[in-house]
Structure formats: C-alpha cells, structure tokens
Design a protein around this nucleic acid. Structure first.
Length: 261
DNA sequence: ATGCCTTTTTCAAAAAGA
C-alpha cells in the first residue's frame, strides 16, 4: 500500500502534473495540500478517469485546501481539527479498509507562520496545540494511523540547507521543533528516518535564487506513522522528478510503502 | 536587500507562501 503526500501549490495550475505523476506512480492514496480551489472546481472526472474514483475534498477559494485521492473507498471523513475553530481548510481525515484492517489517514496543510513573534506565528502555535490534542484522540480511536502533509517544520538541522544561517527563523524555530517532537511523543514515527537516506534530502525549494538547482531546500513535508504500523513500513522516499518539470510545484511528493497484506 | 518566483485575486498591483 503506497501513500503519497504532495503540496501541489494550486491543483488548477498543477492538474496535468498530478495526472502525469499518477500515471507513472499509481499509488493507492494521494494526499494533496494547497488545492487553492473550492470543491465545485475540483477535477473529479479527470481523477476518476485516472483510477482515483474515491476523493475526499476540503476546499477553499485562493488559499489552503486539502484532499485525499483514493483507488478504494474512504469512510468516516473528517474535516479540520475537532474542537479548534479555524477559518482555513487545512485538515482532511478518512478511514481506508485494507486486508490487514482499517487504516486512518490524516492529511494536513500546517500553518506557515511567517516569522516567530508575528500574529501568524501565534496562530501556528495554537493550531499545533489543537492538532496535538486532536491526534491524541484520533490515535485512541484509530491505533493504525498515518499523519501526512506539509508540516511547515524542518524537524532537525539536517533537514535544512542552512541550519546555522536560518537558526530560530520560520520552520527552524525551537517552538516549532518542540511541536514536532510532541507529535512523536504521541507514538508517531518519522517514516523517512526509519531508513538510511541521502544527505541533504529536502522536499521544498524556493522558486527564487535557483533554489532547486543549488539544492537550497528544506524537508518540511512528512509522513508519520503510528507505533502499530511501524513494522509495516517498507520504504519512504522523496521523488524530485516533478520538481524538474516545467512550471513545477515548489514541493516534491513523499511516498511511504506499507506492507498491509 | 521591504529584492529574487509563483499563484490568485482580477487586468495592476498586492498578498501570501516558505
């Protein structure tokens, strides 16, 4: 069972890339962030024709928006963080039945936060608090859980191209990293770090300053699996291929392979 | 260096991203 997370930076602008990527990588579930479109504009027909007939969408005009694209039916769809009032469409969750039992998928577009000390950063902290409480409850209800998405946090120095120069700036700050650590304390495991990985592995590169060409990137898109799934993880990798295509998203997709019968 | 690129608003210039 392959599950991929990808911030596409507008599904309208990136639909052809998504279709091309899925044709080459027919994963079981694709979790998208930053749709930047409302549900009525979601390309259901094109994705169904590509084999993804079961989509759970939580859209928003211009900003945010998340979706789960699945080959098999999804049930118990949840939107945003229960108990946390949010104007933005940032979380979509659903359950997928597998031969090995139900699998809970939680897909998030975490708050960017702009810069420590700003109002947006305070929103990021409050949102992460809410997410932690929500996930603790989700894990009690669904022990077999995968949390994926654009976390907008580089968890460790090795997840940044310039950890010294960017120390305590956005995505690198201690309070953000503390929140990432708190997610791990819930029993979640960073799927990418279960395996030996190339040095300087990143999932996002700035469009400006030849960021990709110079590999000035950050690893901010993650796949976290619950303890119950840890032994099922077969592989986890970043695919830089679509970042090289014309007019790409600034993020690369990350795929986890789970052995689920 | 309040920059650099990209997308969306909507047709010009601003906001936001990371």
């Amino acid at each position: 069972m392959k599950i991929t997370t990808w911030n596409v930076n507008s599904l309208t602008a990136r639909l052809q890339h998504v279709l091309d990527w899925l044709q080459a990588n027919p994963v079981d579930v694709l979790c998208l962030q930053e749709l930047k479109l409302t549900e009525d504009k979601f390309p259901l027909m094109e994705l169904a024709a590509a084999g993804y007939a079961h989509c759970a969408v939580f859209g928003q005009k211009t900003y945010n928006g998340v979706a789960l694209l699945s080959r098999q039916p999804l049930r118990e769809v949840g939107r945003n963080i229960e108990g946390f009032q949010d104007e933005s469409s940032r979380v979509i969750a659903a359950t997928l039945d597998t031969p090995a039992g139900p699998l809970r998928l939680v897909n998030g577009y975490f708050v960017n936060g702009q810069a420590p000390g700003t109002e947006k950063f305070a929103y990021k902290m409050a949102w992460l608090d809410g997410l932690n409480r929500y996930l603790a409850a989700q894990l009690r209800e669904h022990p077999r859980l995968v949390l994926v998405g654009d976390f907008n946090i580089a968890p460790e120095d090795r997840d940044s191209y310039d950890p010294e120069g960017l120390r305590e700036t956005i995505h690198h700050s201690t309070p953000e990293r503390e929140h990432f650590r708190r997610l791990l304390e819930l029993g979640l495991v960073d799927g990418f770090r279960l395996f030996e990985q190339p040095e300087k592995s990143y999932t996002w590169w700035d469009y400006r300053m030849l960021g990709y060409q110079k590999n000035r990137g950050l690893r901010i898109d993650h796949v976290l699996v619950s303890q119950a799934l840890r032994s099922a993880v077969q592989a986890c990798s970043i695919d830089r291929t679509p970042r090289k295509w014309k007019q790409p998203s600034d993020h690369a997709p990350v795929t986890v392979d789970l052995a689920l019968g």
